[in-house]
Amino acid sequence: MTRDEAFLQFLLRMGDNTLILGHRVSEWCGHAPVLEEDIALANTALDLIGQTQMWLGLAGEVQGEGKSADDLAFLRDAWDFRNVLLVEVPNGDFGRTLMRQFLFDAWHSIMLGRLMKSSDDRVAAIAEKASKEVAYHLERSSDTVVGLGDGTEESHRRMQEALDYLWPYVGEMFASDEVDAEMAAAGIAPDPASLREEYDALVQRVLTEATLTIPDSRFAHKGGRDGRMHTEHLGHLLTQMQWLQRAYPGATW
């Protein structure tokens, strides 16, 4: 694997995470439990889509085949997507959506913090811009997880169920492979495994405050970030997201 091939994979991983999560969050539009949440969810989705434009834009540049961020988002099939499985699982109830957001935001904020020191200026610049947005995402999702975890009996139960369901998807964010080794060697991105300690401390602190219990298992579903085996859900998501581009090829919108 050449450095550029690894770099492309890394950029697709970043951009596909934000694209797919942004899509999932946008599904809430108009259906949130309270108006302030409608606004916040739309705002989060908007930030994530904006970050997607930057990551996939750079991916297209590095790939060198003249593809735009839109080409990459709308014209790849599921096996070419490199997002972690966590972001493609269905929204479930509001509790699961916010728990997923928290588990992702915690990783995302630590990752972007490291990427701000990337040896590649373009990566550092994207990370710098995105990290400001993500700091807010994390603050909000943490507060909501704490509020609902330490709320009523029902809200506590639902948040614990959400955590139990999502926890097996956490480990994939810290898996390392040859792409990561190449990126770490080039100083472009950190080895994901090196983020775990900080992540565990952050997540433990918030979930303790939320009176929730982290499942006693390190089992991790994998297959998203290397495209080996996505969930069944991704295909349906892409069917909807890519429909216009697929049905009317070559049109500009």
Partner: peptide, 11 residues
């Protein structure tokens, strides 16, 4: 969304 509003109020 009732459980969410109730949960946040209770918190």
């Amino acid at each position: 969304g009732r459980w969410v509003r109730d949960g946040l109020l209770e918190h």
